[in-house]
């Protein structure tokens, strides 16, 4: 099911959380709402779910105005940042909840519920935890149960609020891949909120970069990373160096800078203050001679070894790509 957001605005008292948001989520896509905390991404997600109502604008599900539809009628699955599992119910009952609370006419039989729940638990690979209680599970397990619970009602849209926010780095990475695979399997339209650019870049089909309640850019991970539309997107996605140029502020990624010992036309002189060489990339910290600002440069290890720069040495920088706003 496709989701269309039209001119959505929402304020909390004096604070304007969302300003005139327009967005289109095509059916079957996995979309990331990416932005710093307080940018309104969670509010937007909650408006799509119906947990919050917008001050202005419309939410359309497959072209049908759903703005004022009750949460229960929207058939969305929602995964909360802190899981929100029912703590006094077993894992099985948690996943079964959405089926059990249906009115009698549409409620599946006990046998069907049992089968459906076990299928879902298999899908999230936690079949063996059916009789445990949520507090007895690890964070990653809880998040997967929360996902199984959301999927139990066969939602047309899956909404995830910082799904991996509360997990440690390793589990996060595993779950990320797992979510991607799951989505490829199920093809349910999914929107997830994150403040982690790496997560968005790795998992999403489309990234919506948000800041101060507004959409800065919408595009594929490649597009938003390689062709940032605004200075904010440049700075938020990945490391970047900012230069003052006569035309305005220029942005250069650390790997888009050539370093040499010889001065060239328009090159910038600086002192190599620090070399950080762990992993395949070597990061150089260079202090500009003219304005004493720091510039980050990334070189491949081989290239660095060839050039063999020493700390303290004077080097000359030249951006190979510069984007001016």
């Amino acid at each position: 099911m496709g989701i269309t957001i039209q001119q959505i605005s929402k304020g909390f008292g004096q604070f304007s959380a969302l300003r005139d948001i327009n967005l289109n989520v095509p059916s079957g896509e996995l979309v990331a709402l990416l932005g710093p905390s307080g940018c309104g991404k969670t509010t937007l997600l909650r408006i799509i779910a119906g947990l919050e109502s917008p001050d202005n604008g419309q939410v359309l599900f497959d072209g049908v105005d759903t703005t004022h539809a009750d949460v229960r009628e929207r058939q969305v699955g929602f995964v909360f940042q802190h899981y929100a599992l029912f703590r006094h119910m077993t894992v099985f009952e948690n996943v079964a909840f959405g089926l059990r609370v249906r009115p009698r006419e549409t409620r599946p039989s006990n046998a069907e519920i049992k089968k459906r729940v076990h299928d879902l638990l298999k899908l999230v690979q936690l079949d063996w935890l059916a009789d445990r209680y949520p507090p007895q599970l690890s964070g990653g397990q809880r998040q997967r149960i929360a996902l199984a619970r959301a999927l139990a009602v066969e939602p047309k849209v899956l909404l995830l609020d910082e799904p991996f926010g509360a997990l440690d780095a390793k589990v996060r990475k595993d779950l990320r891949r797992w979510l991607r695979r799951l989505h490829d399997e199920l093809h349910v339209t999914s929107v997830f909120v994150t403040h982690d650019q790496e997560e968005a870049l790795e998992v999403a089909d489309t990234i919506v970069v948000m800041n101060h309640g507004q959409v800065e850019q919408v595009g594929s991970p490649q597009a938003v990373y390689d062709q940032p539309a605004t200075p904010f997107v440049y700075e938020f996605l990945g490391n970047v160096n900012a230069f003052e140029t006569p035309q305005g502020k220029g942005f250069v990624r650390p790997y888009e800078i050539a370093v040499s010992r010889e001065p060239g036309l328009n090159s910038i002189a600086g002192a190599l203050t620090y070399v950080h060489s762990v992993g395949s990339l070597v990061r150089l910290e260079i202090k500009r001679t003219d304005n004493e600002q720091y510039v980050d440069v990334e070189l491949g290890r081989e290239q660095f070894n060839q050039l063999n720069f020493q700390q303290g040495e004077t080097v000359y920088l030249k951006p190979t790509q510069l984007r001016v706003f």
Binding site: R72, F80, H82, A84, L85, R87, V101, A150
Partner: peptide, 27 residues
């Protein structure tokens, strides 16, 4: 309110939320 919201999204009515989610938690 998260558990209540979760129940709401899963389609539970107000009574069912009170009875199956809220009250057992404050027993």
């Amino acid at each position: 309110k998260e558990e209540e919201e979760a129940a709401l999204v899963l389609g539970a009515s107000g009574w069912k939320i009170l009875w199956h989610v809220t009250l057992p938690n404050v027993k």
